[in-house]
Design a protein around this nucleic acid. Structure first.
Length: 873
RNA sequence: GGGCUCGUAGCUCAGUUGGUUAGAGCGCUACGUUGACAUCGUAGAGGUCACAGAUUCGAGUUCUGUCGAGCCCACCA
């Protein structure tokens, strides 16, 4: 039956229909796969995208990689689950909605009130979530939508509360006064990794607290000095040694201070005056010193970055105004010694860029150092480090293992409370002096819930198991249901930029609640940069919507362009050219299939009989391809796998075997066999087009077709088959080259003679093939020796000589040959030098030496022939 | 200050334990194409693999240093 496919593949016409077909088949859900009970599972959870905005190409890249892995594993017979979800991204989302409100309605969240504001957030959320899910489907993701989760849906809320209570009961979660990074603009604390350091020009002032004070200090923030309770000096510093331990009184701009002189090795003697004014309440380093030296902690600044009451006329001023006023005062008192320019790093909020105030505040923390009995008396930090060190969790590429461990080792307790409205509200209730931590809201009157919400990573840290039915599926330390089947997951595939934010928390939380790792491998992909190498971001407006590239070039081309030419952990630049090239390839594959399907009589391969050299060659190449692609995919070398597939499909199959099939006959079985195999091998990369072609001659669904095995009986005579066929290719190419170089009219029939000794047999067998293959020879002779006619040109190919006989421009030919002689003489000289090297001949493997010798011989033969030719002309 | 990555063709990038002539795509040049495919075909030009040194019979690949680009962490009182 002949099939008639369209001339060009049209992605937008087919993709939707194919996706529907997959969804209808039910095979996205592993429960519907026809598998034995004991089949191994393979699980990946989709890193839940923020619902703050539509997806960009970075997400598309994540999806392309994960879909590739999961489709490959599904076809390889695993019970493959890829679990979708989205992230509420508390701070980010709240910020976006706040900005939107301000822009569209001109109101702030405070004017609107908590409840109404949250309604707005949920409304926004529904809209963006729809867009995002639509985008994901457009890329062809084979996600199990029946298990779709959201970090703030009912089930996850339950899981979060359960986790909070368990951690609280275990003493892992505690409330404490700590110096936190406070954003006065967002009115919230920020984690250390939510802070950006920005260079800025500042002034550093040098002064004494008062006229009579013996030590000068330097600072960029004089206003905080109102809260100083010590001066720290380096114990090695001779200038200040005598003061250490003294308690001094000072009157700083009218405020009385008790200053203790303490020693600390971290003080840089060469910076400023070498004496550091210690402000425990408003500097992280100083806070530490205060703890070590039992200093008084005196707050100066409030949550709005204003000076607190009790500081006379400075009270109520914004820090910047207070700074100005203090400098004026110091000038008046004539104690300002120096005012210098300085470039320093300002800590700013990663969301709103406001400058951060370190403030002491009551917050909830997760302890990373507390020993946990059921984890072998180890802390979460220790367990996590252990998992990385003993390789139970493997990083790809491995260099991120070190970064992960360095970061873990320096990890402090995790501040999980956030002073924002959108998110998981902390499940703690207060009534009078009583505190209640509970999964359920207390029924009794009068309990008031903590107003803060949890850090967004608290809920996403539980992602691998909260999505699999925890805690319901975990009773008496026994896993059941999905949790038992699919946890731990196999791979976490994500961007390297959140290795610390997310990966570490997932490992800790999984250890805490399940006592096991959340995933076996962490595959880290690079970022997708724009064509100038800049990070794509909303603010720069250089983000690319995958929907746009999909509608112009197709999902397959978009995916392939993201998969190829990239290696794990390295950033990739996006370019439209690349997508276009992949679109062209997809079309090529389409046309290869079109040609095969329209030229065969029977589309079911029955009995593959390899008859000719070309058959053996292509089948052998296919075997090698299957082995190689399988290995590549197993070791996460996606780009290389795609390259090899392209090479086979385009350079071997299309360029050679299909051409041969136009000359040699009866290749239906082999053609359909090869087509089926490459469609399967390509499917994880470019699922749509392969499925579309597949359905034109199969009733089954390609997505669940079995991954190919090599055909054992073709594994014979490997070496000869390849060499022989490559020889034919070389000859055909050489004939064409000679024609082009000598400007032979395309229609002019010419005679060719091949002078061959060892290769005679193979050449004799393939005589017709060579004559017909993309050449236009009048005749082809194969001789052992021949006297060359005058009007001929000669080339040497893989050890055989080839003569084309026709009229030739002798002047041009002489020039060409002379150049050739030059080239050869150069090569021969290099080659001889190599072989004269005793070390080389004695120490290099015999194989290499022989190859080099053979090379020299070939050069010599070639040179000889050309010289002969030259004489004749 | 500590750490990481990168530097290969005009551009974007591959190149797995060191091994035959360093590859691909795009771009460029020439020629070609009415039947699988112009989303095509054939061929060509284009590389001191950043630089210097070391190890080795042999280095794009290993080591050291230098220069350049980028990133992460800490911190500047």
């Amino acid at each position: 039956m002949k099939k008639d496919l369209e001339k060009n593949y049209n992605p937008s016409k087919n993709e939707e229909e194919i996706y529907e077909k997959w969804e209808k088949s039910g095979f996205f859900n592993p429960d519907n796969l026809d598998l034995d009970e004991n089949t191994d599972t393979y699980t990946i959870v989709l890193p839940p995208p923020n619902i703050t905005a539509k997806l960009h190409l970075g997400h598309a890249s994540t999806i392309a990689i994960e879909d590739l892995i999961i489709r490959y594993k599904r076809m390889s017979g695993y019970r493959a689950l890829w679990l979708p979800g989205t992230d509420h991204a508390s701070i980010a989302t709240q910020n976006v909605v706040e900005k939107k409100l301000l822009k569209e309605k001109g109101i702030t969240r405070h004017e609107l009130g908590r409840e109404k504001f949250l309604e707005e957030v949920w409304q926004f959320l529904r809209e963006t979530q729809d867009t995002i899910l639509y985008q994901i489907k457009k890329t062809g993701a084979s996600l199990d939508w029946s298990r779709l989760a959201f970090t703030l849906d009912e089930k996850r809320q339950k899981a979060v509360r359960h986790m909070f209570k368990e951690m609280y009961d275990e003493g892992i979660i505690y409330q404490g006064e700590r110096l936190v990074n406070w954003c006065p603009r967002c009115n919230s604390t920020l984690a250390d990794d939510e802070i950006d350091h920005k260079e800025q020009n500042a002034k550093i002032y040098t002064f004494k607290y008062d006229k009579d004070f013996p030590i000068s200090i330097s600072t960029t923030r004089p206003e905080t000095k109102l809260g100083d309770s010590a001066i720290a000096v380096n114990p090695k510093d001779e200038r200040y040694k005598k003061y250490i331990g003294q308690e001094l009184k000072a009157n700083f701009c009218g405020i009385d201070l008790n200053i203790k002189v303490i020693e600390d090795y971290n003080v840089d003697m060469t910076f400023g005056t070498g004496a550091l004014g210690v402000t425990p309440a408003h500097s992280a380093v100083d806070w530490q010193m205060a703890e070590n030296n039992d200093l008084e902690i005196r707050k100066v600044i409030d949550e709005n970055a204003n000076i607190l009451p009790g500081f006379k006329d400075f009270s109520g001023l914004h820090v910047l105004e207070a700074r100005k006023k203090i400098i004026e005062r110091l000038k008046e008192e004539n104690i300002l010694e120096k005012e210098e320019d300085l470039v320093n790093n300002l800590s700013t909020c990663y969301r709103c860029s406001a400058s951060i105030e370190p403030l002491p505040s009551k917050q909830w923390f997760v302890s990373v150092d507390k020993k946990i009995e059921r984890l072998g008396n180890k802390s979460l930090k220790e367990k996590t480090l252990e998992a990385s060190k003993d390789l139970s969790i493997e990083f790809i590429p491995t260099r991120f293992k070190k970064r992960f461990e360095d970061w873990m080792e320096n990890l402090h307790d995790w501040c999980i409370s956030r002073q924002i409205w959108f998110g998981h509200q902390i499940p703690v209730w207060y009534k009078d002096d009583k505190v209640l931590v509970s999964e359920e809201e207390p029924q009794e009157e009068g309990w008031v819930q903590d107003l803060d919400t949890l850090d967004t990573w608290f809920s996403s840290g539980m992602w691998t198991f909260s999505t699999l039915g925890w805690p319901d599926n975990y009773i008496n330390n026994e896993k059941s249901g999905d949790l038992k089947k699919f946890h731990p997951t196999q791979v976490l595939e994500t961007g390297y930029e959140i290795i610390t934010l997310w990966v570490s928390r997932m490992v800790m939380m999984s250890f805490f609640s399940l006592g096991e790792i959340p995933f076996e491998k962490v595959y880290l992909h690079g970022m997708i940069l724009d064509k100038d190498g800049k990070k794509m971001s909303k603010s720069k407006g250089n983000g690319v919507d995958p929907i746009d590239t999909i509608s112009s070039y197709g999902a397959d081309a978009t995916r392939l362009s993201l998969l190829m030419g990239s290696t794990p952990g390295n950033d990739v630049r996006f370019s439209e050219d690349k997508i276009e090239a992949k679109r062209n390839f997809v079309n090529k594959l389409w046309n290869i299939s079109r040609y095969i399907l329209s030229n065969i009589d029977n589309e079911k391969e029955s009995n593959i009989k390899e008859q000719t050299l070309a058959d053996k060659w292509i089948l052998l190449s296919l075997n090698e391809l299957i082995t190689s692609i399988t290995n590549r995919l197993d070791s996460f070398e996606f780009s290389l796998a795609a390259e090899e597939l392209t090479d086979f499909t385009w350079n071997k199959l299309a360029d050679w075997y299909l051409e041969v099939s136009k000359i040699e006959e009866n290749k239906d079985d082999i053609l359909i066999y090869i087509l089926k195999n490459i469609l399967i091998l390509w499917h994880p990369f470019i699922p749509f087009v392969t499925e579309k072609i597949w359905e034109s001659f199969n009733d089954s669904v390609l997505m669940v077709e079995k991954w190919p095995q090599i055909d054992e009986k073709i594994e014979i005579d490997k070496k000869n088959i390849k060499e022989d066929f490559n020889l034919i290719i070389d000859i055909v190419v050489a004939i064409r080259n000679l024609r082009t170089k000598n400007k032979i009219e395309p229609n002019l029939k010419i005679d060719a003679v091949i002078i061959a000794r060892d290769k005679k047999k193979i050449l004799e067998e393939s005589k017709d093939l060579i004559t017909n293959l993309k050449t236009n020879l009048k005749s082809l002779k194969i001789e052992e020796d021949v006297k060359l006619p005058e009007n001929s040109v000669v080339d040497v190919v893989s050890g055989v000589e080839l003569c084309l006989i026709f009229e030739v421009d002798s002047k041009k030919e002489v020039e060409r040959l002379k150049k050739e002689v030059e080239r050869l003489e150069k090569l021969i000289k290099v080659q001889k030098g190599k072989l004269d090297n005793k070390n080389f001949v004695e120490k290099a493997p015999e194989k290499i030496v022989n190859i080099e010798k053979e090379k020299l011989d070939n050069y010599l033969v070639e040179l000889d022939k050309i010289n002969k030719n030259l004489k004749e002309i």
